[in-house]
Simulated scan of single mutants.
Amino acid sequence: MKRRQALKRLLQASGGMVATLLPGCVNSQHLRLLFAVEPQQFDQPLPEHRVTPVGEFYVQSYASPPEVNLDTWQLQFTGLVDQPLTLKFTDILAAPQADFYLTMECIGNRTGGKQIGNALWMGTPLLPFLKQVGVQDKAVEFMLHGADSYETTLPVADLMRSDVQLVHRMNGEPLTRSHGFPLRIIIPGRYGQKQPKWLTEIEAIATPKKGYWERQGWSNTAKIATHAIAQKVQGEKVWNKNYHIDLPRMGESGWQGGVTLAGVAIDQAQPMEWVRISTDNGQTWMQADINQPSSPHEWTLWQYLWQPTQPGTYKLLAQAKSRTETQKIIDKNGKDGSAGILRISVNLEP
């Protein structure tokens, strides 16, 4: 197989991401390359799913993970409801269960950062329980409480969607202590700060309030913005502030045979229409290959084969567009989620 043909397809599902700090994100101990680098694997088609291993999934924490006793754990529905309800873990398991893929990202994830991961979750819809308790008309928000004393709020309508889930399994296994054992809530389209772990109470309230991170100035809506994240250039990861790469002309990582670029793109709720690549700092753009995940809440995988002809220093950019939003070139407000475009400097040696 010729190198050009071999490089046409990139990426076999593997690997994941970890976190740094801000807000409430802590480092995992592991960091694995996202994409296969052996040329004989580049002819594989983009998979529909790429799952982040639990041990490499970023961790978002307001405080130290609490010790939760499953035998005594309860989820309470309180406040402005007609019939307050207390659920045990067996009640959660007795409800209808479903698996679904969803990508979660920390709102503090900087442009091109690694505080993002994709998992196969299992849980049960929240909506039937809200209908059972009868949310009163004067309720305007729900306050979500965790066993670690974390709290955040969302409008009533946002939690009464059919896709909001009470989750107890991640990648086929029970939630670990770090990821919210025994139960966390998943609210598609929101950054992680709106999806508390160790969930213990859902309180209907009449007056809007702000949660812990929101009181620190972070977005109160925390809606995910459309954005692409470049993760790898010619076998070298470009996250973790490594935004400059030197490539030799020849050899296994040489640029003369083509340079592979790859990453992910994510949107709040719409399928991705395109991811495009610029190798000249945004003057011209070329469309990348993307996959078609079954859920708009799961990251879109993208890849591009760049075939430069001259040495020099180039600025690489990746931009995404969903059905409703095009990624900003520059995003100055980092406290609503960093959605600006990462500029990667690549030096092609003579």
Rank of each mutant, 00 (worst) to 15 (best):
I277G: 05
V140W: 01
Q256H: 13
L33N: 07
E325V: 10
K210T: 08
Q76G: 00
L85N: 09
E201N: 14
N171H: 13
N347D: 09
D267Q: 11
W299I: 02
L93R: 15
V156R: 08
L166I: 00
L80F: 08
D280F: 08
D163G: 05
N27Q: 15
L316V: 15
Q270A: 15
A320V: 10
A36E: 09
Q287M: 07
P182Y: 04
A228T: 09
L75S: 02
F142H: 04
W255T: 02
H145Q: 04
G263N: 05
T20G: 11
V26R: 11
Q310R: 14
I116C: 08
V37K: 11
M104R: 15
Q234C: 10
F100P: 09
K197S: 07
A139L: 01
V233H: 02
A36G: 10
L166Q: 07
R215D: 13
Y304K: 07
E349L: 09
Q165M: 15
T260Y: 04
A19W: 01
A13R: 15
G282K: 14
D158I: 00
L80R: 11
K209G: 06
L317F: 10
L130H: 02
V59N: 04
G217S: 14
S278K: 13
L348W: 08
K241R: 13
V164Y: 07
G172W: 03
